[in-house]
Design a protein around this nucleic acid. Structure first.
Lengths: 111, 111
DNA sequence: TCATTTAATCGTAATATTGCAATAAATAAA
DNA sequence: TTTATTTATTGCAATATTACGATTAAATGA
């Protein structure tokens, strides 16, 4: 095997898993942090951030884009990438909800 | 290649990536949701939640535990697993921080 | 037009993940 | 003690990810 059984889970589970999975790599975290730091964002700058080859950074950018973490517009030769507020809003809301529920339970039974 | 260059990133980046990576699988999201739903939590119940074999569920539980998402105590034959508030607190705080910063920027330049 | 620059894509090798059957380990029940 | 019962571990096959060099595509500048 090796393939995830995607057709057995709820839409919600798959969506949240996809969003978090893409964040689950230090290079992509680094890219996100960089996009947060700068205002305008051209890929050439990003390439110099993580210690990775241009092709690898481009691949990570594509994955971030596929999960809607970033959006980008063509701008001449360069590409302008920005973080996508909607996805980040959704992600933080979902996780916050889990955390709030967890706090409310207050570990009544065990552990 | 294929291996992540872990020694090139900050502690913060690696920690956040590890925590989100483990969440990046629908079976593990399903397990988290289940642990949130029930009070006392024995693995036997969990096995019947995702459509997976017992060995696979056990493996997902181990990964969740390795990233401190859950903690468990031995209880006779069964194991009592619970979500770990500390890790969830850390995760939501980190992501919230990113989201807040993103909102404050308000996409001034582009996109 | 032709070189230069910049980012995406392709092909490929190395490694990691996913899932399960089989087995082991540990306790509970008989 | 013997037999279930329950979870962990092992070993393996299938698939996915990671990373990079080489190439391509598209736009800019000389």
């Amino acid at each position: 095997m090796g393939a995830t059984k995607t057709d057995q889970y709820t839409e919600r589970q798959l969506r949240l898993a996809t969003i978090t999975k893409v964040l689950g790599h230090p290079a992509r975290i680094a890219i996100v942090e960089y996009l947060l730091k700068v205002d305008s964002c051209i890929c050439g700058d990003i390439v110099n951030e993580p210690p990775l080859a241009q092709a690898t950074v481009s691949q990570h950018l594509r994955e971030l884009k596929s999960a809607n973490h970033i959006k980008g517009e063509i701008e001449g030769t360069a590409i302008c990438y920005c973080l996508n507020q909607e996805t980040w809003s959704l992600l933080t809301e979902e996780l916050q909800l889990i955390f709030k529920t967890l706090q409310a339970k207050n570990n009544s039974a065990c552990c």
